[in-house]
């Protein structure tokens, strides 16, 4: 069994093999792989015996279930109203400038992917962003640069 098969199998063991397990399994794969490949969706379909098209249709409904390859760290900058008013664009510029990528792109070293997202529920501390599951609030360009440097360092040490 290759790693994807093992991963899907383990997730199915954990969450069950009924239709209700689809989302937890998809989430489990995304947690490991960062995105859902064609292969992994086929494995899920096979493992819980539902049509592959349904897996795809379900996965693409949810914006946190990426179906395109992404970097190790997915940055999601909130673009909804309060964050937009409180300087989301400057945050975005700062990130783009630092990582040399545009929105929707991934750094060549596959470390970071930059995306926008809708309200994160931290409007009172806008602007806000998520890096994977970690939340960062009251952002300023300086603060963002610091945060990203932190991620780069951790990774460089690996």
């Amino acid at each position: 069994m290759d790693p994807i098969q093992t991963l899907v199998k383990n997730l199915a063991e954990k969450h069950g093999r009924s239709r209700e397990s689809v989302l937890p399994i998809l989430q489990g794969v995304v947690e490991q792989e960062k995105f859902l490949s064609e292969r992994s969706m086929i494995e899920i379909a096979r493992e819980i015996d539902i049509p592959a098209a349904d897996v795809y249709g379900t996965a693409t409904f949810y914006s946190f279930l990426e179906t395109k390859p992404t970097g190790q760290f997915i940055i999601r900058v909130c673009k909804t109203i309060t964050c937009a008013m409180k300087g989301k664009n400057q945050i975005l510029f700062a990130i783009e400038d630092m990582l040399k990528i545009g929105l929707g792109e991934t750094t060549p070293d596959k470390q970071f992917t930059l995306l926008e997202t809708n309200c994160l529920g931290w409007c009172h501390k806008a602007p806000a962003m998520l890096i994977n599951d970690e939340i960062y609030t009251e952002l300023t360009p300086e603060k963002v640069r610091e945060i990203l440097s932190g991620y780069m360092k951790v990774n460089a040490n690996h």
Binding site: P51, A53, Y56, T60, F61
Partner: peptide, 10 residues
């Protein structure tokens, strides 16, 4: 019962 087609995205 084929499910070749699906709705995707939102």
């Amino acid at each position: 019962g084929v499910n070749a087609l699906t709705v995707a995205h939102k």
